[in-house]
Design a binder for these strands. Structure first.
Lengths: 155, 155
DNA sequence: GTCGCTGCAAAGAATTTGCACATCC
DNA sequence: GGATGTGCAAATTCTTTGCAGCGAC
């Protein structure tokens, strides 16, 4: 967890009158101790490694808090559960490419895309507030080699 | 329901060895009797108007069938329930702008967007298979008038 | 008559919540 | 000491499924 994140978090907790507890601390460290996207369940496991008394309920109660702070972003990838993205505050406009074969998620940013989104929104009489772009496809590698190298890396 | 839809549906049902039942017929007519996006629950109501014996289970069993036929598209708008889009087969590449104030959904297509998606996918070594672009914002109308005209139209 | 279809009610699965106890400040 | 936080288990909500009877072909 970098200093800027720690500081923003600190001031958020203070402003909201939220207390420091061991459980909350463990969850926060788990969240910002990775740059991977994770589910509530995965976070529970990661947090428990740091503080075994963390319960599922506390994880579920903490996640919306962190999202409200703007430091964590809820991701809807079309599964029946939510993912969370701890990289969001560093690049708020980033979008995702998801591999159809191995579910690997690659983040990308594109000024060109942003401009186009703005243009289209205006065409339809909207003021763009947020965007979600999810591209899905197969690794071209897979097409050539017959096996997606990423399959190994990401379950 | 237009003839092309009816025909594609007919051949799909036949190929799969699926039977014509009153319930299934009522659901199908309800699905393609509107061009609005709907939820499973809304579809149940619409189908029951045509055939009161339609049950929730049958609706839930029919929706995946229609999606498999390619004539209906499941939409994930980030709510805890799914939406379905009966306009999908007419314009498979269309995307959505969603009003943050009234949840109104506007469909759009953009060649420019499509090309950009392809370009970005290739940059990251992917062969684009499908895309989901959801723009959110406020009606500019709302900003000026203080009230979104659409609020009336869409619950 | 054979299978697929249906309704009902119960089961699932992720997430939320009520409550009594614990704990931070 | 008092408000906030926590764990547990039960509740919620959308969706799926087992089962016994029904109906299309």
């Amino acid at each position: 967890m970098d200093d800027s994140t720690r500081q923003r978090l600190e001031s958020f907790l203070e402003k909201k009158g939220l207390r420091h507890t061991n459980q909350r601390q463990a969850i926060i460290e788990a969240v910002f101790g990775t740059d991977r996207h994770f589910t509530a369940d995965e976070l529970l496991v990661m947090a428990k490694e740091r503080e075994p008394t963390v319960s599922r309920a506390t994880v579920y109660r903490t996640l919306p808090l962190l999202c409200a702070s703007g430091l964590l972003k809820e991701l809807d990838l079309g599964k029946d559960f939510k993912y969370y993205d701890p990289n969001y505050s560093k690049s708020p406009d980033h979008n995702h490419i998801i591999c159809d074969d191995c579910d690997k998620i690659v983040e990308f940013t594109s000024d060109e895309m942003k401009k186009l989104e703005d243009k289209i929104s205006h065409q339809f009489g909207f003021q763009l507030a947020s965007q979600k772009v999810q591209l899905r496809g197969t690794c071209e590698q897979l097409k050539h080699s017959g096996a997606c190298e990423n399959k190994v890396k990401c379950k």
